[in-house]
């Protein structure tokens, strides 16, 4: 098991490097650059700014040169020529600075390091995401188990109805509706911004509703299938209490799909959700991202991409470990 975790941790590094490489070139190939978009700078200033941030260097080790026209027709491959730029290029500088743990300077927020920006704003996203996730998981599991234990009862039908609607309401519709009701009509809760617990209620509800519904649905279906299994009949025949049968024997099997669904969701929620952060004016990573990308703040965008990617990769690993912990069959498979 430990070996499995270590091996997987080792694969996170190269995959992150691939993600960094892919997003680096995607970002650089997009038209526009950090300083050209702002009209306030004269060309000389842009040039010196580019020099200051190292953006005047060649992008990669090699540059593809224009294909030369030759007299004799040759295959296109032989006509490709490259120029060697040496190691002082933007890609290598960036990758080696990440390797030193430095995410570079922001081009939009003058004088600020990307690491500091992320360090300062990630907690907002993480707190919001963690609370929403915890709520979705507990409420979803409770509803799902309840519905499965009393199948085709009023509760089951109610859960089905609620979850069908909840999954289908987009967050950007739910958020405004909640604000309209709780803040602008009844004046119970603040409509936006970061503050105490009361400020968190509406964004958490907006963010968690759909996931609560999906987890409830997954739990209900998993439980319903598990409760029909032979080992449950055996447990009943042994005279175990119903609570033990449901919570220890059936739930263990029923939560497997919930676990594999929840892992990526947790990563997604922790990394900051653009819509909810924007709706409720929360200064998390998500609200930064769009702004940075449109302003071509390469380093900030890349920094957030790296955070997101690492979160997803770690979440996948955690999912696998938890699954193995819950299901001995998978544990056995992994240990071999």
């Amino acid at each position: 098991m430990l070996r499995f975790i270590l091996l997987r941790l080792l694969t996170i590094l190269p995959i992150t490097l691939l993600v960094v490489t892919a997003s680096f070139f995607l970002m650089r190939s997009a038209p526009g650059s950090p300083f050209v978009n702002s009209r306030t700078f004269s060309p000389e200033v842009v040039e010196s700014l580019n020099r200051q941030y190292g953006l005047d260097k060649p992008i990669f080790f090699v540059t593809l040169l224009e294909p030369q026209t030759l007299e004799q027709p040759t295959s296109w491959l032989t006509r490709l020529t490259f120029r060697w730029n040496g190691v002082n290029n933007q890609y290598w500088n960036y990758v080696s600075s990440i390797a030193r743990g430095d995410l570079g300077p922001s081009t939009r927020y003058e004088g600020r390091r990307v690491g500091d920006i992320i360090f300062e704003h990630f907690p907002y996203s993480a707190i919001l995401g963690a609370i929403s996730f915890a709520l979705a998981l507990t409420v979803g599991l409770a509803l799902g188990v309840g519905a499965a234990v009393r199948q085709n009862s009023g509760l089951d039908r109610l859960v089905f109805l609620l979850t069908t609607v909840a999954v289908s309401v987009p967050a950007f519709v739910l958020g405004p509706v909640l604000v309209l009701l709780f803040s602008l009509t009844w004046y119970w809760l603040p409509p936006a911004r970061w503050g105490g617990v009361r400020h968190l209620i509406l964004p958490v509800l907006t963010l968690s509703l759909a996931y609560t519904a999906i987890i409830a649905r997954l739990t209900r279906d998993g439980m319903a299938a598990a409760l029909q299994a032979d080992y449950i009949r055996t447990a009943r025949a042994k005279g175990l209490r119903e609570a033990v049968i449901v919570l220890r024997h059936a739930l263990r099997n029923a939560v497997l799909p919930v676990i594999s669904f929840s892992g990526p969701v947790l990563a997604f929620l922790l990394g900051g959700t653009v819509v909810v952060e924007r709706l409720f004016v929360i200064p998390g990573l998500g609200s930064f991202f769009i702004e940075a990308a449109t302003a071509r703040d390469y380093t900030v965008v890349m920094g957030i991409v790296i955070v997101t990617a690492v979160l997803i990769l770690v979440a996948n690993l955690v999912t696998d470990v938890v699954t193995a912990w819950v299901d001995p069959r998978i544990r056995h498979e992994i240990s071999r």
């Binding site: 892919a22 995607l26 190939s29 990394g271 991202f289 449109t294 997101t308 990617a309 997803i312």
Partner: peptide
């Protein structure tokens, strides 16, 4: 399939923004 894994780890909104600016 490893390519798919890498693509999964890229935030989708980032890819869309880049595609649009392209």
């Amino acid at each position: 399939m490893r390519t798919v894994d890498v693509l999964y780890a890229l935030p989708f909104i980032f890819v869309v923004i880049v595609l649009f600016s392209f």
